[in-house]
Amino acid sequence: MFTIEILGKTYNSAAVFGQLLIGLINGSFYAMLSLGVAVIFGMLRIANFAHGAQYMLGAFVAWALLNLPELFPGSGLPSIGYWPSLILAPVIVGVVGMATERIFIRRVYDLDHAYGFLLTIGLAMMVEGLLHVRFGSAGLPYGTPKEFQGTFNLGFMFLPYYRAWVIVASIIICFGTWLLIERTRLGAYLRAATENPELVQAFGIDVPRMLMLTYALGVALAGLAGVMAAPIYQVSPQMGQNLIIIVFAVVVIGGMGSILGSIVSGFLLGLIEGLTKVVYPPGSTTVIFVFMALILLARPQGLMGRT
């Protein structure tokens, strides 16, 4: 073991690397979630405050799929495990998102931004409240999939296989989404519709339907992050509540609506948070917000915002 000097003080390298690794794991979730928020804001101009609840919903659906026999005794339904849930839960959450866009979100496109914000806050509270009524606030356990039971010995800490998988999967998901938007024809439609939806529609594309699918995509990403979070954090109705505030800060830091910005600042802020836990532990809960205020003062468009 060796020591590391930060700002004139010496720290145990194991502690530093350990916290950085935890930061990277948290950052994986920040990145996946802020990515979805950025996609939705970029295309729909809706600040989707329900994103935390939709993440929670992903975890809950995975939990429910696993516990189908107990939830519906006598129905003969099978227990559906982690791997199928990784596909199924985001699809289910995405479909819920589609319905949400159709029934609620679409009615506020033409109103002031504030109303989209208030509407999605309300939706989040409804979902969180109802699940709280039904399942209580205690965390529900979700076991680590058996393929991932075990740890790597990194010398400075033990890294559970599952958490390593989360980091890798998150990078793949973020990169994949970025490719989808920046490099495919579908992505070109989305980017064009962000600039000039009227013209894109006049070329023959059903823009309202595209917006609905974009919302569903963003929401499905939140659901996917939720499934991945289930084995790490406890599954509870409130699990997305504090997270969504951090995620919004991340999105603002990255540059509202910038896909790449939200990914980069997601991982970056996870690491910064981890480092703060070493250097000044009481500051770890607030460092992201302070960072956001500083960024907005120095560079109002965010790290990677365009205008």
Partner: peptide, 14 residues
């Protein structure tokens, strides 16, 4: 208990 939150949410939406 938790109904309060759900109803508050519904009020926002409504």
């Amino acid at each position: 208990g938790a109904w309060v939150q759900a109803i508050q949410g519904a009020l926002f939406v409504g």
